[in-house]
Design a protein around this nucleic acid. Sequence first.
DNA 1: CTGTTAGCGCCTTCAT
DNA 2: ATGAAGGCGCTAACAG
Lengths: 355, 355
Amino acid sequence: MRIHEVAERAGVSVATVSRAFNLPDKVAPATRERVERVAQELGYLPNASARTLRTQRSRVLGVVLPTLLNPVFAECLQGVAAAAAVGSYAIVPMTTAYDEAQELRTVAQLMAANVDGLVLVVSNPARSQALQRLRAAARPYVLAYSAHPEHPCVSVDGEGAAAEVVRQLAALGHQRIAMVSGTLSASDRAQQRYRGYLRGMADAGLAVLPVVEVPFVDNAVQSLARYLDAAPRPTALFCSNDLLAVRCIRAARLQGLRVPEDLAVVGFDGIAIGEELTPTLSTVVQPNGDMGRLAVQLLLKSIARARLPDARDSLCLPHSLRWSESSAGPAPTWAHTVFTEPIPTLSHHGGNHEI
Amino acid sequence: MRIHEVAERAGVSVATVSRAFNLPDKVAPATRERVERVAQELGYLPNASARTLRTQRSRVLGVVLPTLLNPVFAECLQGVAAAAAVGSYAIVPMTTAYDEAQELRTVAQLMAANVDGLVLVVSNPARSQALQRLRAAARPYVLAYSAHPEHPCVSVDGEGAAAEVVRQLAALGHQRIAMVSGTLSASDRAQQRYRGYLRGMADAGLAVLPVVEVPFVDNAVQSLARYLDAAPRPTALFCSNDLLAVRCIRAARLQGLRVPEDLAVVGFDGIAIGEELTPTLSTVVQPNGDMGRLAVQLLLKSIARARLPDARDSLCLPHSLRWSESSAGPAPTWAHTVFTEPIPTLSHHGGNHEI
DNA sequence: CTGTTAGCGCCTTCAT
DNA sequence: ATGAAGGCGCTAACAG
């Protein structure tokens, strides 16, 4: 279905049909209605490629995310999609698996696809070649989840939030607080949260524990369980994301530890499912949907003004701490000896609450 | 950066540059190398819109999903993305929130965007206007997660799997097995699984219980808890998806019920996080990634042959039952009276395992 | 092996 | 208020 056929059926020129769609004011009401009716009947929709080629604007935004298997980014993407839809923009999301080479390839591909702008979550803004390339090509982009003085960003104060969590855990009476993180080098955010941990521990006058780095998801629970098996174990774990927190809770249970009595676990991200688990997840709640939404709004605003987004327009969104069931103050000393047996495994059919 | 500039810098015509990219064999090695080098230097990438307009092929696939907030579809999308990447196709995912009107709009938008084909998860293939439209326009598409004799599909036998789950629960000694479902009318799949429940109960000679329909996510846990409060309660719940199962487990705990001793809970989907929860989720494991992957392969194969995918090429993938910690046989009668107090709520700071 | 050229479908200036 | 026509960047005949 092409514009020519609509024009023919409506007894007008293609120019009039085009105007009826794009500049409705410039066409007589009667004509416009007729064109619209015919277009409707024929199911005509303007060919996006031709329009893009002609106008040099695609009304498409590229979205670069590490993965969609972590709900935090899926939630963000929903916000991006919602805000884009409001502005009549389509989105093309792509995932990079936290790999910087792939970030670069992805961005190149998106540029070739003529996206009008990009929202991206990158591993490390400071050294990202993908961002350099975008800047060199003068493509509008906004980062989400990262803060960097030279890039337009929408983020939360991850370091401050982490420090706050640790201080509050200390205030609850915890002294041995360990940080659990994914591969630190893979993500700027993980490093930021770790710095927050260090600062919080210093503020509380506590001794820092070695970071528990869990690089591979496969055996995360296994290695965490092993870690928790060795004395003296921490009384609280601060995890750099909620999925890690879920795994820590499982590892604790496998070791026969109660959460939160024997081990408090706090996550980071505020993924929705965290509130449905048992115990519900204590965590740093980020406004994931809003992060995406506002990144898009910043982007679209700058596009409308035909300028690049300015680093000075960066936004730091408020976060909140959710103190929920997976955390509490440490149990008194005698309690630590109660649960030394691992919980029954599957063959006993899950009697993990009879103990 | 346009093809013309590359041609100029390389001292050849635009046709040669184009050929160097698309038909490398038809250009002299020396020339090709020079063109490639220049293109590299200039960071040239062919304009996708122009190419699409000219060739009438975009090398883009549309992906229509209900939501990305349910990990089952995020997992599927990863499979889709992987298979598309292998075939050098980009993807444009869109979500429909289980709304049929939005499915139609989304498909129309994707068609206007010149996608070469679509993978879609729709509410109800039998009455989907979106599918009618695709068929009318002769666009290649493949459905995932649904089976329908008139459409090319990649799915699992949801009814059979559900019946199997119910029979096995019965074999474990359960007699009061209830089905928990989202809005039945919103999804073909939910209905299919419900039919499986009915069949399984009949096979086991058990009396069917009224389906527990949980239409709105907001108060799902609340209403489930209320349901579980009323006697006589079921000893096993079969949930039409894993997220519901997670909520059922929480509702049970809120009522002071142990899972699985007082209440066995089985889900459906096999989302990855289910294995990390405590208790780990018993569920029907679908190959979510493969579902997406194979749907794309079917699609690309047919595109390569310049034909529409045939309903007779539909695939029914194997599923498996994962019997894990959230299910077990029913506890003996005396056990039902042990836990009658609700677990402490947040204000008591989560002592839900001290009972 | 390489160059010239005609559109793909649309928007937009210019003319009427 | 409407129509005619050029060209966005690219690929694929067709020539040479």
